[in-house]
Design a protein around this nucleic acid. Sequence first.
DNA 1: CTTGACCTTAGAGTCAACTCTAAGCTTATA
DNA 2: TATAAGCTTAGAGTTGACTCTAAGGTCAAG
Lengths: 143, 143
Amino acid sequence: MLKISELSAQSGLSAHTLRFYEKNGLINASSRSEAGYRYYNEADVRRVEFVKTARNAGFSLEDIAQLLSIRVDKQSHSCQEVTDLTRHKLHEVNAKIDELQSMQQTLQILLDSCCGGPEKATHCSIMEALDEGEIRDQARSKK
Amino acid sequence: MLKISELSAQSGLSAHTLRFYEKNGLINASSRSEAGYRYYNEADVRRVEFVKTARNAGFSLEDIAQLLSIRVDKQSHSCQEVTDLTRHKLHEVNAKIDELQSMQQTLQILLDSCCGGPEKATHCSIMEALDEGEIRDQARSKK
DNA sequence: CTTGACCTTAGAGTCAACTCTAAGCTTATA
DNA sequence: TATAAGCTTAGAGTTGACTCTAAGGTCAAG
């Protein structure tokens, strides 16, 4: 059984974050000491690791809450539910990548166009490009 | 001279956003009616367009404030200042892309591994992969 | 002269995922 | 036994870029 600081050290998540995850229903300490100290058993630790792994994969805490509810009762859920979540997340990630790549290109073009030297910015081609607005619009995502 | 709703229609930014940008020192209506209504002249409009273009390129409002201060007095600034800002932004964008591409790969692998069918999730390979934590860690950026 | 569309302001709310604070117990060590 | 480290809670603060609300003033059309 681990105390919160021990789980924190082991998981790399701060004690604050672990409590925050608990408040949001993601994890739980399956027992408490008399004084109310959280004690995490092996199953708790595995659940925390699951959350960590899902976070790394890009899932939001809300997504993870869903994944966890599937995890605790796999009988009642289908693979499709899981792939739907995953596919949806993948679409989001792809959209964000597109947006950022568009910015990347723009920024690279701007950089390539400018001397970058100690010259006065009076005729800086980056400033001119921004002034002209000749940069194609890109969809910035709402969220 | 445009009223705020007219500039809003023309620029695609909401009146709320225009006022918000003003509050943050990015833009200004160069004159006001007796009643206090904002009136934007051509230079104001160009400045708003500059902000829009820079936003599209990926610059934050804080970055844009800097770019604008360069814009109003190009004599006192060098191309290097501009490229420094741009290069820094490009690095940020590149880092974010790397992070997202890593997620993309992970999600794609997860998706490919699962049947996605109506089968019970008892042996869902996505759930198993998340449980095993066999997914390589990726640096999630702080900001 | 009234209705409705538009404008003003200060300030609060939203989102996500933390991150931190304060005030007060508990526990381990010297 | 005293001190320090660690734990508890509720709740506030952070970040960035909006987004909205309330309460009220203004203006053009019918």
